[in-house]
Simulated assay, not measured.
Amino acid sequence: MSLKEIFNEHKWLWLAAALLIFTAGALSAIWLNARNAEHVDAPVMEASRTDDASRTIGETITEAQQRKNRLPEVVKSAKDDVMRDVADTNDACIADLWNGILGRYREHRTAAGGL
C-alpha cells in the first residue's frame, strides 16, 4: 500500500499533515525570533528621533493639561468682566449695542443673498 493510497483512504490525514506542518513552522518562527531578539541593535539616529518625538508629545500633553486646568479661571474672569461691563451700562447703551448687532446681522444677510 502506497502513501497516496493511504491518504486517499483516510481523508483526515490531510488535516493532520497540514496541522503538523503549520505547528512546526510556528515553533520554528518562535525559536528563531527568540534567538535573534538578543542581538537587536536600534539605529542611533532613529532612537534619538524617537526620543525627541516622545519628549515633544509629552510636552504638548502637559501644556494642553495646563490650559485645560486654567480654563475655569478664564471663564470666571470673562464672566466677571461681562458683569462689570453690564453693570456700568444703562438701558440706552444696551439698546445701541443691540441695534449695532442687528445692523451687522442684516448687512451680512443682504450680502449673502438672504442665507
Rank of each mutant, 00 (worst) to 15 (best):
D41A: 05
A92D: 10
E9M: 03
P72K: 11
I6L: 06
A78Q: 11
M1P: 03
D41S: 07
I101Y: 04
L71C: 02
M1G: 12
E9A: 05
R55H: 08
E59W: 09
T110D: 04
E9Q: 09
T62C: 04
D41C: 02
L15C: 09
L19R: 13
T50E: 04
E59V: 04
S48E: 04
A37N: 04
R49I: 03
E38M: 11
M83W: 10
A29R: 11
R67K: 15
E63D: 15
S48Y: 02
L27N: 07
S77C: 06
L32H: 02
T110I: 05
L115E: 04
I6E: 00
Q66V: 07
E38S: 13
D88R: 15
M45K: 08
M45C: 02
R35C: 03
E73F: 06
A64K: 10
N36H: 12
H108I: 12
K11D: 05
R35N: 05
D51F: 10
C93H: 07
A26C: 11
N90A: 09
E107T: 09
I94P: 01
R106Q: 07
A92I: 06
K4V: 08
A92S: 10
I57Y: 06
V44N: 01
L19K: 14
S2L: 05
I57Q: 06
M83P: 00
N99I: 09
V40S: 01
A112H: 12
W12Y: 14
N36K: 14
A24P: 01
H108T: 11
H39P: 01
T56L: 10
E46I: 11
E73Y: 07
I94V: 15
G25V: 01
L32T: 01
A111S: 12
Q65L: 12
E59C: 04
V86P: 00
A34Y: 12
T56E: 09
Q65K: 12
F7H: 02
K79Y: 13
S2A: 03
V74G: 02
G103K: 07
S28D: 01
D81M: 11
E38Y: 08
A34K: 13
T110L: 08
A29N: 13
L115A: 10
L97Y: 13
T56D: 03
E5C: 01
W31D: 03
A26Q: 06
D88V: 14
S48A: 08
T110A: 08
D91S: 12
S77T: 06
R35P: 00
E46K: 14
R84V: 03
N33C: 12
K79Q: 15
Q66Y: 04
G113W: 00
D85I: 03
A87P: 01
N99E: 15
A37T: 05
V74Q: 11
K4L: 13
A87G: 07
F7K: 05
D80A: 15
N33M: 13
L102H: 06
F7N: 00
I94H: 14
A17Y: 13
R70P: 00
A92Q: 13
C93Q: 09
K68Q: 09
R109S: 05
R104I: 02
D51L: 14
D91I: 12
G58N: 08
A64C: 08
A24L: 15
G58S: 10
